[in-house]
């Protein structure tokens, strides 16, 4: 069995005074792909923001360890530098900051943290253009301000580009398939799969099974009422697709 990468124990978290995550437990080992599925409003996105330390998402109890280190005491940027990457459901537009400039700041901040020399501009551009081409993002696109005026599919391709360039140890995909056509989803799934090396782990948060057809999970968890209510293998996702979440959601 591989070493644990992420260990979440009895996690409780709230947003604006409302408890969303309740006694959540999950361990993800190196190389594993986990999927969390659940109905709208169950708190799936909240979980991903809590793991990234987004301001406004308050942990009230519990622990999270990443590579054995206390994750919750780290700043958002240090979590990223340690190797956590969140593919966001709604990537943010930043006018005036070209995509390549943004990526260069990002890559070099992570390299600096790891005591690696910063990439020079030529090396960096070569890397980004090559990875961009694989994702269908051309040079013109990379010069544009990041995500500004991008279509939903282009934004997700940009997220995938950031991910493959940063090569995180742990990627969280928050509804990465929402708003994507089949082609874009295949491209995004392709970059996720390209990162699989038996060491890196993923957490895929989704409503639907369809992304899981392209990125095959080792475990599927059903998330309801703030925690995991059932765990199974990939067949659980198929089952959910047929029967829905009704039996897991408490009647309120």
């Amino acid at each position: 069995m591989n070493a644990p990468l992420l260990e979440i124990e009895d996690l409780c978290a709230e947003v604006s005074g409302k408890q969303i995550i309740k006694d959540f437990n999950l361990t993800i080992n190196e190389g594993e792909i986990h999927a969390i599925m659940g109905p709208n409003g169950a708190g799936k996105s909240t979980l991903s923001y809590v793991l990234c330390g987004k301001p406004g998402y308050t942990v009230t109890s519990g622990t999270v360890r990443f590579k054995g280190k206390d994750l919750l005491s780290m700043s958002t940027e240090d979590r990223a530098r340690e190797g956590i990457f969140l593919v966001m459901q709604y990537p943010v537009e930043i006018p005036g900051v070209p995509s390549t400039t943004f990526l260069k700041h990002s890559v070099n901040a992570v390299r600096k943290y790891k005591n690696l020399p910063e990439l020079d501009t030529m090396e960096f551009l070569k890397l980004v253009r090559e990875e961009g081409r694989k994702l269908g993002l051309d040079n013109e696109m990379l010069k544009r301000p990041i995500n500004v005026g991008f279509s939903g599919g282009e934004k997700k391709r940009m997220e995938a580009l950031e991910m493959v360039v940063l090569k995180p140890d742990f990627a969280i995909l928050d509804e990465a398939d929402s708003g994507l056509d089949i082609d874009a989803m295949k491209v995004v799934a392709g970059s996720v799969n390209s990162l699989r090396d038996g060491k890196r782990s993923m957490l895929i948060i989704t409503h639907f099974q369809r992304l899981l057809n392209y990125v095959e999970p080792d475990f599927v968890h059903i998330f309801a009422d703030g925690h995991i209510v059932k765990t199974g293998n990939k067949n659980l996702a198929v089952e959910l697709e047929q029967n829905g979440y009704a039996e897991y959601v408490k009647v309120k």
Binding site: R81, S106, E162
Partner: peptide, 12 residues
């Protein structure tokens, strides 16, 4: 925007 950048490792 600040959160997005920080989540990519860029310091505050």
């Amino acid at each position: 925007q600040l959160f997005y950048m920080r989540s990519r490792g860029i310091g505050e």
